[in-house]
Amino acid sequence: MSVIEVRGVDRSFVVRRRSGRLRRASTTVHAVRDLSFSVEAGEMVGYIGPNGAGKSTTIKMLTGILVPSAGSLRVAGYTPYAERAALAQRIGVVFGQRTTLWWDLPLRDSYDLLRRIYRIPADRYRENLDTFTDLLGLGPLLDTPVRQLSLGQRMRGDIAAALLHDPDVVYLDEPTIGLDVVSKSNLRDFLRETNRERGVTVLLTTHDLVDIERLCSRVMVIDAGRLVFDGSLEGLHGLGEARRTLVVDLVEPARRSTYPTRRRCGSTGRDSGWPSLPRPAPRRWSPPSLPPTRSPTSPSWSPTSRT
């Protein structure tokens, strides 16, 4: 059974900006267009794409804090925006750039508040807290106020917080952002373990492809609000030509047959961290296509408009 069902979802925002002294022009920005996918129970899916592609918008719709402009969503059998409170019991969210913990309180107090918010049975709470304290090494941190935790410590605290109420689905929005290599690796081990042991469905947003490589069997790529790829990581690597040009300057001239210059070499794209998508032709650098002259209505930083 699919835990997450997204069918033809659109989300647009109206952005108003000044277009004159008093006039304001409204433009509609499509954050997500015609998005469809489904995630099965127990899957661990990577959700990647450049900044502004619509990842966070998707996650916000899946948690119910944004209503889609069109299309339908189901998470764990609920329509997120209509049944937000009921859904909240079944999902956990980690925002890498925000914390769900209480800044001035010791970690333990945050967890106790969460126990009450989610009405976690006392024995289940103790069991989960013990497990996570153990696996994430939170023991010495439990009595430290969150504001005194380092980023890596806080992130571990946040991940435990998201899992305390045994959610079916966890959204991880850039959970490894800003973490060092060792912390990232430990966090990944924990996530893999949790996914396997508890069968939690995980939707992982990240800019670090290594996260995806280590954790997810399936990747979805979103670009400009559209899903452009949904499949295995190998498939994604195979998709792009992922070629790069290697120019070699030799100290001494060599025989052409031994060192062919300007030959295009195939690459797996693996080492680049980000596979390049198919390109029509080898790219030559050309200046960005800016209009040659600025119109008088251009922003006020342009000296010509200050009249």
Binding site: T63, I65, Q89, R98
Partner: peptide, 13 residues
């Protein structure tokens, strides 16, 4: 202001 209110909103309280 910071957008952290999103976290408050998705809680079932």
């Amino acid at each position: 202001k910071t957008g952290d209110v999103a976290i408050d909103l998705y809680r079932p309280v």
